[in-house]
Design a binder for these strands. Sequence first.
DNA 1: ACATTATTTAAGCAAATACTTAAATAATGT
DNA 2: ACATTATTTAAGTATTTGCTTAAATAATGT
Lengths: 128, 128
Amino acid sequence: MEKELDQVSSCIRLFADQVQIQVCKEILDENDDAFTRLSQVYALAGNDARLKILYLIQQQNELCPCDLSDILQMTVPAVSQHLRKLKDASLVRTRKSGQTIFYSIIPDQADVINQLFIHIPNPESIAV
Amino acid sequence: MEKELDQVSSCIRLFADQVQIQVCKEILDENDDAFTRLSQVYALAGNDARLKILYLIQQQNELCPCDLSDILQMTVPAVSQHLRKLKDASLVRTRKSGQTIFYSIIPDQADVINQLFIHIPNPESIAV
DNA sequence: ACATTATTTAAGCAAATACTTAAATAATGT
DNA sequence: ACATTATTTAAGTATTTGCTTAAATAATGT
């Protein structure tokens, strides 16, 4: 008697707040692109190795696969494949120097990436 | 002649900065727990549906699986399984009212979760 | 030209993901 | 007691992920 939904809802509670539900749908819809991009970034950051790679690159300005392999104690191809994903997502870029390839954060994305680490205590001890 | 690494390194560049590499290792090591937790949270947020679920719960204070199913246009079991992961990770908690179960953000985690959405424009239009 | 080094690419595979449908729980109303 | 409703759980499955090892590219030095 209360229901005029054209779509068969799985939820039949009488007191379901249809207005609230509609508002929510609209908010999601308006920000759909943002959610897509954000979840893509978080999916990349959601891997321990990749999160550390991003952190290290951001913190050291640039690093090569070789160094990352040393630091993270993982094989070079494994690192390389992570770097490729980060590059495909336009989070990092490369600079070639001889046979070494340096990866760095794409400046546009620095904000988003720095956000990822605001709960990691900043090392003062870097001043070698 | 330069190398006294006990571990066979994959990287043999002469100019590899061993100090830098050591410093990086230590930073990672000191923050290992933080990285583990962070990547766990990002892995959860790295799914489009789950990111939206977190956003909606945070924004509406509490929601039930039923409403989320309506809003996100996905089956109730699918939603329920996402909620379980969020609960297992101690990001959300439940309140039971009759047969309805309301999910809300665990206050401790509000900071971390709000961080996830700082690039999503805040809807002023919520004032229904 | 040839060997070495840094990196990427490719192929293979075990594990994790995210859904599906069906069944099990549990609270409510008649 | 019984049917309905909200939710969870379980089992099955296709896809994705993240490594592995081996091979392919490309730059460097002799």
